[in-house]
């Protein structure tokens, strides 16, 4: 088994969790296939080299560090060029990256540059002789598709949260390199980066999601959803398409087939009917709670715990109870 190249995703000077997931997936694949090194490409502004050690903790043998002020913001063309150049020069078996906003963008670019086959959004990777066999939830999570990918290298993106970062410490060797294309010469340039609120958890990373639907009756009543999320302290707020289409919440919070696909420990559906397109985005959550006044609502078919009732009455009571439980009463 030859080596595997990982794109260690960063935003600003921070390493993103998907980077550790990709390193974990690559380490697992390399070990299962009889050994081989994991090389991680780390692009970022000056000082990003300090993140290399963390990649070593999760099983990377080599960090290729590219520091460039132009990597403060996502420079898709320069990163794709650098990743492809590395993949070409190193004789890698696979290029692994996360299926995040960045990874979705980079993966097909790199595959086309390398003329390498690509499989997206995979939940498992195995070597089978000369081929790699991956699992991928297709048809909006309604069918598990097992794909055989032949050729070398192959590009693989991993579904966020499908691979739990696992420590596997290596004394990482660090190598510095230049970007293969100048990030200040991008054709697609980032004019503005709008950060979500400080300390706000992303839907893909939050252990708890409190999600609201049209049953809340108005944008103002989403305050109840926000309060419940705040009571948990580790929760993000989601919404249905009915709600985002009405402009009560931004589309970035939409969960479902055409929105985000999430798998938190706990998903609380507030005033949500449970349409098949909504379920497509959250049915793999570990525990599902539903609050809906209609006991026939389809959401109750997938809810581990359902409460039939008016959200305006039940949610504030639940918020209070969660606050008390968190406070240890």
């Amino acid at each position: 088994m030859s080596n595997i190249l990982v794109y260690a995703e960063t935003r600003g000077a921070e390493l993103r969790k998907v980077a550790l997931e990709a390193v974990t997936a690559a380490r697992k694949l390399a070990d299962a296939a009889g050994g081989g090194e994991v090389h991680a490409l780390l692009c970022g502004p000056a000082g990003i080299a300090a993140r290399a050690e963390q990649l070593g903790t999760y099983g990377a043998d080599v960090a290729i560090v590219v520091e460039n002020a132009g990597f403060e913001r996502f420079a898709r063309e320069a990163v794709a060029a650098t990743l492809a150049e590395r993949a070409k020069s190193g004789g890698f078996r696979a290029v692994v990256l996360g299926f995040s906003a960045q990874g979705r963008d980079l993966g097909p670019r790199v595959a086309a540059k390398l003329d390498a086959p690509i499989a997206s959004d995979v939940t498992s990777i195995e070597a089978a002789g000369d081929a790699l066999v991956v699992k991928h939830p297709g048809f909006a999570n309604k069918v598990v598709v097992t794909l055989q990918v032949t050729g070398s290298p192959v590009v693989i993106s991993t579904r966020p949260a499908a691979f739990t970062p696992a420590e596997n410490p290596k004394s990482i060797r660090t190598e510095t390199a230049q970007a293969a294309a100048d990030p200040s010469a991008e054709k697609v340039t980032v004019k503005e980066l709008q950060e979500g609120g400080k300390g706000k958890l992303d839907l893909g990373e939050a252990p708890v999601i409190v999600s609201g639907g049209r049953g809340l009756k108005s944008a103002e009543n989403f305050k109840l959803v926000e309060d419940l999320a705040a009571a948990f302290g580790n929760a993000a707020v989601g919404a249905t398409r009915a709600v985002t289409d009405d402009g009560w919440r931004p589309h970035s919070e939409q969960i479902g087939q055409t929105g985000r696909q999430v798998s938190p420990q706990l998903y609380i559906a507030v005033g949500i009917s449970g349409a098949i397109q909504h379920l497509a985005g959250m049915r793999t959550s570990k525990t599902i709670v539903a609050i809906n006044k209609d006991k026939e609502a389809p959401i109750f078919k997938v809810a581990d715990y359902g409460i039939v009732g008016d959200v305006l009455e039940v949610v504030p009571a639940l918020t209070e109870a969660v606050r008390q439980a968190k406070a240890g009463h």
């Binding site: 906003a101 054709k187 697609v188 340039t189 004019k191 503005e192 980066l193």
Partner: peptide
């Protein structure tokens, strides 16, 4: 473009 917990505004020819 929506990013995880953020958004970017991009320009292109």
């Amino acid at each position: 473009r929506e990013l995880e917990g953020a958004a970017e505004i991009v320009e292109f020819p």
